[in-house]
């Protein structure tokens, strides 16, 4: 699925002097299986961009097309189908349900498409060292443990694009590498592309394109 951004600018920034960089009010074609790195300092709107790409925000001018279709034509039901079958996301604020266990948070996503079996999820959990936490309530996990659960959850669906909004901010180097390995494997399995936003430049993936937001 190709993503086409044309002169997009979020409404709060329109007319402001801060529309700079290589993203807002510029044109981009993100082709399938591309790995895109969005480098953005704090406050430059990387989460806003992720929100626009995920259909969480429609307060922008410009044009966003997914596989040639303008998102303005998409209904709530259409977005639901995209979010369950095409576009996965790791939110910056994780968006986990604290009162459920880790495994329940994963299963809520997985049961939409029954992408993975029990054994497959166990295997992925082990690769991220969170197997022993699966029965714990999310509220009791550390930020880093929650982030790994959020990554696992995001992978439990078929996708063409994976959006990652500062996905490793709470992970140490070892766990970051484990997460990268898993994401690479699953993304390749889906023949998918990914868009990763970060505060700093990184080389987590073989990026097709790097763009700066400011």
């Amino acid at each position: 699925m190709e993503i086409h951004l044309k002169n997009i600018a979020p409404n709060p920034l329109i007319g402001a002097f801060s529309i700079v960089g290589e993203v807002w009010e510029k044109e981009h074609h993100f082709k399938p299986e591309n790995y895109i790195h969005i480098l953005a300092p704090s406050g430059s709107g990387k989460s806003t961009l992720m929100g626009i790409l995920y259909g969480m925000r429609n307060d922008f001018k410009g044009e966003l097309r997914l596989q040639g279709e303008s998102v303005l034509n998409l209904s709530q039901e259409d977005w639901s189908k995209l979010r369950s079958n095409q576009i996965g996301i790791v939110f910056q604020d994780l968006q986990l349900l604290d009162e459920l266990t880790a495994i329940e948070n994963i299963q809520i996503k997985n049961q939409l498409t029954n992408k993975y079996t029990q054994d497959e999820i166990v295997k992925m959990a082990k690769s991220l060292d969170v197997y022993g936490l699966l029965n714990k309530k999310v509220a009791l996990l550390s930020r880093g443990e929650k982030q790994r659960i959020a990554i696992l959850r995001a992978l439990c669906m078929p996708f063409s694009w994976l959006l990652l909004d500062e996905p490793f901010s709470a992970l140490d180097e070892v766990n970051t590498q484990k997460a990268i390995a898993l994401i690479k494997a699953v993304t390749a399995e889906n023949n998918a592309g990914l868009i990763l936003s970060n505060l700093y430049s990184d080389s987590y993936f073989d990026y097709t394109k790097k763009v700066r937001m400011a």
């Binding site: 995920y54 969480m56 709530q76 039901e77 639901s80 189908k81 979010r83 369950s84 079958n85 996301i89 939110f91 968006q95 349900l97 809520i108 996503k109 939409l112 669906m157």
Partner: peptide, 15 residues
């Protein structure tokens, strides 16, 4: 907020 989160995860409002 929970309803919003479910919709963000891909659950349809109709569902």
């Amino acid at each position: 907020d929970r309803i919003r989160m479910l919709i963000l995860l891909g659950y349809s409002p109709t569902g």
